[in-house]
Structure formats: C-alpha cells, structure tokens
Design a binder for these strands. Sequence first.
DNA 1: GGCGATTTATGAATCGTTTCAATTATAGAG
DNA 2: CTCTATAATTGAAACGATTCATAAATCGCC
Lengths: 335, 335
Amino acid sequence: MAASVRDVAQLAKVSVGTVSNVLNRPDKVAPATVERVHRAIDELGFVRNDAARQLRAGRSKTIGLIVLDVRNPFFTELARGAEDEAAANQLAVILGNSDDDSDREAAYLDLFEEQRAHGILITPIGDVTERLERLRAHGTPAVLVDRSGADSGFSSVSVDDIAGGYLAARHLLEQGRRRIAYIGAQFEIRQVADRLEGARRAVTEVDDATLEVISAEGLTVLDGRRAGERILARPATSRPDALFTVNDLMAVGVLQALVMTGAVRVPDDMALVGYDDIDFASAAVVPLTSVRQPSRLIGSTAVSVLLEEAADPSLERRTIVFQPELVVRASSVRH
Amino acid sequence: MAASVRDVAQLAKVSVGTVSNVLNRPDKVAPATVERVHRAIDELGFVRNDAARQLRAGRSKTIGLIVLDVRNPFFTELARGAEDEAAANQLAVILGNSDDDSDREAAYLDLFEEQRAHGILITPIGDVTERLERLRAHGTPAVLVDRSGADSGFSSVSVDDIAGGYLAARHLLEQGRRRIAYIGAQFEIRQVADRLEGARRAVTEVDDATLEVISAEGLTVLDGRRAGERILARPATSRPDALFTVNDLMAVGVLQALVMTGAVRVPDDMALVGYDDIDFASAAVVPLTSVRQPSRLIGSTAVSVLLEEAADPSLERRTIVFQPELVVRASSVRH
DNA sequence: GGCGATTTATGAATCGTTTCAATTATAGAG
DNA sequence: CTCTATAATTGAAACGATTCATAAATCGCC
C-alpha cells in the first residue's frame, strides 16, 4: 500500500542507497538528483517507515517520560521543557502517567523497553532501580527527575526542597512573624519532609520564633480548607501569625477558609505562603506568595543529561539540584 | 548486545518459529517446550523488539492522541479514558500536546504518520482534514474528539454544548432568576458559541427573562475576576441576578471578585453556574454548580470507534454526541 | 502393525530502511 | 592525454520478529 524507498528509487531512476542519502545526508548527493528524488517522494506521498528505521538503528528516536500525575502543572511544565530539548535533538517524548501506581509504572517501563527507547526520565514510585539498571545494561540510560539519585547510581535532576522551605520560613520571619505553622500531610513523601526541615532551620535561627506542625489528611484544596477551619476554631490568641503550606493547592484551601468567615484578615492577621507557584496562585482572592520551582528547566536539563549519558555511558553520574525561588505577593506582606 | 529470538531459540534448542509461537500463540506449543523457552527468555533477559514486530506487522500498536492543552483537566481525563480502552486492546496511547499551535499539531501528525500509528484521535485546530484523509487512505483512521465531525467525513465523539448551555440557564431560571448574564470570550470557538446558544434558547422560553452577554479577554481565572469586577462596578440595580460562565476557571475568578468585596452574596444576591466541573469547582469558597462532561467516557468511546474503523475501513462514519449533566451545588441555590 | 488425522516444530522468506565497501563518473594536475 | 584525487552512486547485507508452507512426530483406531 504505502510507498517505500524502493518505489521512490524506481520512479526517480536511482538506487535505494541514493534515496536514503537524500533523506539523511542530502549534501552527499548531487543537487539535481536531490531534486529528482524529492519529486518522486511527493508524487508517491512517501513517508518514512519509522519501524524499519529503528530496527536498523537499533534504538528509537523517542524518550520515555514517566510522571506521577499529569494533572499537576509542575509535571506538565516539566514535560514541556523535556519536549523542547528533545525536539532540538530530533527526538520525541512519550509521556506516561503512572498516577502513583507502581503497576502502571511497570507497564510503561515494559512499553519503553520494547520500543528500545533512547532513554528514560522517571519520577520513580516503586523500587525500580534494578529494572533501570537492566535497561541501562541493555543500552537505555535513565535519569531520575524530582528525586535525588545520590544513592541510586543514577543521575538525577531535582530541586532543593530544604532550601525552598528555608526561603519561605525566613521570609515570614523577616516580615516580623514569630508563630509559624507548617501545614502538610503524608510526611513520608520526601518533598513534604524536606520543606518542613528547611522551615525548621530558618526558625531555629531566630530566638523567639516557634514552628508548629499541622498535619492534614491529604494534599488537596479541600484538605487545606479543613486545616484552615481547624485553625479558626482555636481561640484567636493561640493561633499562629503565619502559615506555610506544603503546596499551593492547600494554600488556596486555607485561604478560602480564612476569607469565608472574615474573622482573620490575610495578610494582616495571618500571613500565608504556598509552594509551586501554580497559575492559580497569582489569581487567588489574595494573590499568593509562593516558592517557584524551575519546572521547565528541570525537564530540559534532564533530557540534556540523558543524551550525554546515551552518547557516552561511561560518563560519571551527576546529581543536579536546582534552587527554588521565592515569589512575593500580597498574602505575606503587610501593606 | 540485546538478546534476540534467535539467541533464545538457540539456548532453548528450538527454532525461531517456535519461540515466536510461544510469544504469540502459546496454546499451539507443547507445554514442556513453552516452559523451556520461557526459561531461556528469563536467562537471557530477552525483550521483544517492537520495531521489528511493527515492521513485519506493517502497523504499530500505538494510538496517537493530540489534545489542545494537557493542563486542562478535561483533556487529561479524556486521555485517561482513551488509555484504559486502548490498554484493554493491547494498545498504547501516545499523548501529544498541540497547545493550540497548528505547527505543533502538524509535527505530531508527522510523527504519528512515520510511526504508522494504529489510529489517531485529534481535537483539530488548523485545517487538517486533507491530511487526515491521506492518512486514512494509507490505512490510519482518525476520529475527531470534542469536535463535531458531521461535515468533515470523519467520525467524531463530542458533547452537546448547546444542551449544556440550556441546562445551566434553565436551572437558573427555575431558581427564579430572570436577569441572566453569560460570561465568555473568544466566541469563535464552537464550545463558547454553543453554550451561549443553549442559554439563549432556555431564556426565550421564559417570558420576562433576559440574557446579557459579557465578553471577557480570555478564558482564565484572571479574566473571570476582571469580568466580575466590571459587574461590581455597575449600580446594584442594573446588575444581573445570575451568572453563567463558559468554564469553571472563569467562574472561580468571578467568585473571587464577588467574595472579596463582600458587596454581593453568592448565591443570595447573585447565582453562579460554571462549566466542566473541575476539581476546584467543589472546593471553591462557595461550592460551584457546574455542567459536567463525561470526559473519560469520551476518550474510551473514541478509541472504540477508532478500533472499529481500523478493523473495517468501509464502516460508515459515526457522529456520537454525549449529553452533559448539571451538578447542583451551593452557588446557585438559595438556602 | 499400518494408515490417516492431528499435534508440534521447522526455517527460509519477508517487512523497509540504513550502511558501507565497491564501482563509476568527474575534475584537476602534469 | 594520462593519472590521481574526489565526488557521486550503487546494491547487497543487515537489523529482528513473524508467517506459512512443509516436515516430523505422535496418536488413535481397526
């Protein structure tokens, strides 16, 4: 049905080798011939068969990216960065969504392995290092994203969450706040624990400052709102004067609870800082101070590292850690 | 480097044909042989080379899905539905994000064509019907999603946005509201226009009801907030008593504007209905009444239709239209 | 024990591209 | 006009799984 190089060669009256050269190294072919071959390609509507090309090449032109949750803007931005960098190297990115499910994660690894992916970027859930090592032995390198790979034997690109937590808390302290509360959940997640750790460090640097830890059910808007309601239920004197939430979704929830009753003014009575700097953050009722991560840069850097390792597998593993940045808005600064 | 069927065959002391049979039709092979081959596979760490398989098969095991915006929960849910249905048929979905850019759309079509995708699901931007027809002629069927394909010669799976607009407006009318405003932007987008059209129909059914159209800059939270502020700037008597926004993001923005000042109570002074029923809707300061679309079902249905056409290209085109559903919450009902 | 039916196994041919050693054409130098 | 670089082109081999016509082994039955 579909035309092949053979058909093109025949129509253009050249050999298949020449057609291939026109496709891949046009400078090695006489201009007139290039022209003739192109005409034949157009006439036949020829489109390269990627499967055959891959078979010959032994490796696909695709990078597999497995993220935890495509609904999280952090990951879509990361994916976008990866895509851009990959495209600059004539590669495509296939996005897999593990949804925090290690079976789905494994299924995507199977797929990428069968496809002989050029490389794999992954935010691992289950214990996949063994799996990844086998892949690497078979020529498919992997880079961990948003995870420190220091101990795993893999390169990694991540963000310093301890520094992020420190930034947020120090900012609140600099605004004169002293009774800070950290609102989080699922403290076994590294990010949640690290941000707390960072906040703790900032607080210990100031003599009369205290840090309270408030544990919520989950990490959603609704969980944030519930946490906010619990704080409001306390007598005004025993409430914190500043809140730092583990992510922006929760911060939005907290904000809803505070604004709804009107009992507490933000930032006058209580300052609020979130994390991630999602689009919603700047559009909240009170624009939200937040900690921004260079998500897009993480994606593109991860691809760069991956490609370097693909080109030279003997390269030493690298652990790249980006620094987050504080974005100050109305929710934390008295006017 | 990597083991091939040939290596497996050698180790298991069988022919390559038998190895292939073990992989694809194990019931045609004696149990003892199957066992022996599996041991060899494990020992060598053999993994099928998908490129070789595809080359022989002439078609890949992948469905290409091109969406407008992965950040929109509607599309991620749709993708999820497509994935599930595809997985049930031993197929994988590759998600491409066109970001409303017809160049990116074309690049993904190129990719899918070279990969000899099993089929393509697309929410088209540019004029791609010609392109899709060529693909179909070469054996790659396509189904339009979230677009009516009635006139394009392609099957389509979409939602009845006119009905959705009607539902929203009629609900407001049933709550006794009479001065309804529709807030939207980019009215050339079919969805935006259709929802308005539906609202208009509902309003004309009620004698003393009026429909005002408020045009915003864009479709984001911030645009909604600005629209809300403009409404507040008007004297109380000339304000509408109900708002219907083209999507939930804008509804959230409007809500922020109204709540912030406290001048207007929702729903008492002004009722509010959004569209899409995103997660945020139920978590808003005032839980939001919204129109829900069966996004996941759209995705899975589109894959089903696609597979049927792939199996029998002579099949008649189908135009499937789902009905949306009204989800009533506090923002539109007086308590 | 012989015959046909059935089950199981074989291996060469095939898919379409790329590669590369070999060949032919072309140009420039002497 | 010959000889040697250089440029342009050729075409067979290879990649690895699948298929299918064919062969071999096994079985049941008279």
